[in-house]
Design a protein around this nucleic acid. Sequence first.
DNA 1: CCGAGATGTATGCAACGTCAACATAGCACA
DNA 2: TGTGCTATGTTGACGTTGCATACATCTCGG
Lengths: 195, 195
Amino acid sequence: MSTPSRDTYHHGHLRAALIDAAMEMLESGEPFSLRAVARQANVSQTAPYRHFADREALESALAVRGFRDLRGELSLTGGPAASEGELVEFGVAYVAFALRRPALFRLMFGQECDDQNDERVLAARELRDLLADSLQRLYPGTDHEALAEALWALVHGLAFLHLDGKLPVATSEDVAARVRAAFGSLRTLGVSPAV
Amino acid sequence: MSTPSRDTYHHGHLRAALIDAAMEMLESGEPFSLRAVARQANVSQTAPYRHFADREALESALAVRGFRDLRGELSLTGGPAASEGELVEFGVAYVAFALRRPALFRLMFGQECDDQNDERVLAARELRDLLADSLQRLYPGTDHEALAEALWALVHGLAFLHLDGKLPVATSEDVAARVRAAFGSLRTLGVSPAV
DNA sequence: CCGAGATGTATGCAACGTCAACATAGCACA
DNA sequence: TGTGCTATGTTGACGTTGCATACATCTCGG
């Protein structure tokens, strides 16, 4: 499956095969290296350099796929959230994604990344737009910029803190409940005396 | 300064010198390696292994110092926040720390860490306790757990998103203003229809 | 004063990312 | 049908990393 027939000198789908192999290793927990990826694709150690300038380029390709996947999981319909409850579930799905595919999530966010990679920047932007559209629909007339940042940061922070074991946790349902509780608790701020 | 007199065979303060050297490299942007750190401390490549079991142990030591530093910057007095405004400034300081010492912050959070390292776990816990104490004082009778998680996640997420360049940004004052705006915008949620 | 244990050193390994030089396959064009 | 160009894959090598083992040197308690 992952190893196309290698009876010809030319591989044919090397680029895709490399991404597949790298993603597979990433998901299975082992740290991926260019050499290991090449090995998995049944190809010489330096073959990847025909398709990726360097390791970072491969990582960006993985990140792009990650962003697309994440967006797909947030919004099953592809559109923005239609209710506040749905918005909260976006957050739940975001954190769930991070916990289910931790290595990929870290790769997408937890490191200095190539900001020159247009496709990668674009993919991240799509995610942000989905949230912005949702907020614009749900809270017309408010400061979307600030709210979008706050909510994204909230779920992003929850994801990372859970990932790092900084928050005590058990099952994935437990995590989901905590995400909802976090959203709910913010109302405490709203009804308290002004800053 | 960072290189104690090396006129004796035994270094004397090797452990501290190694941590200093590593921190210095980290702050100055260069990726630190055990070998490079040893070089900087004017010591053989394997000498660090007398003081740190492996690379991760050194990282944990750096992380511990980072947690202590961060806690000190959040609360200048050492105590919890006395007002909601002060709490917001905790958040501002948190994000500022992350942006001023990005490599250290990433080391503290942005990677799988050694949860077996007691000192490291403890240092992280101190941070969490500071927030919990503040909330207990400011909002008696609420669900501190959830609110603490939410607020920590908020600033943590803001820090990471800024670090990753996912949010457009300019000066550090700009960032501070955005953090305050993010806190403020959460009130929007509070006054909106129930979930 | 002397030997045991703490501390630092020398050497070497396997794996990594990367590069330059070379081999091969398939397509464009005659 | 043939010929050569270019994209693709291979080989071999360099310098780096983390780490382990065997060895040298110092310090201190008796």
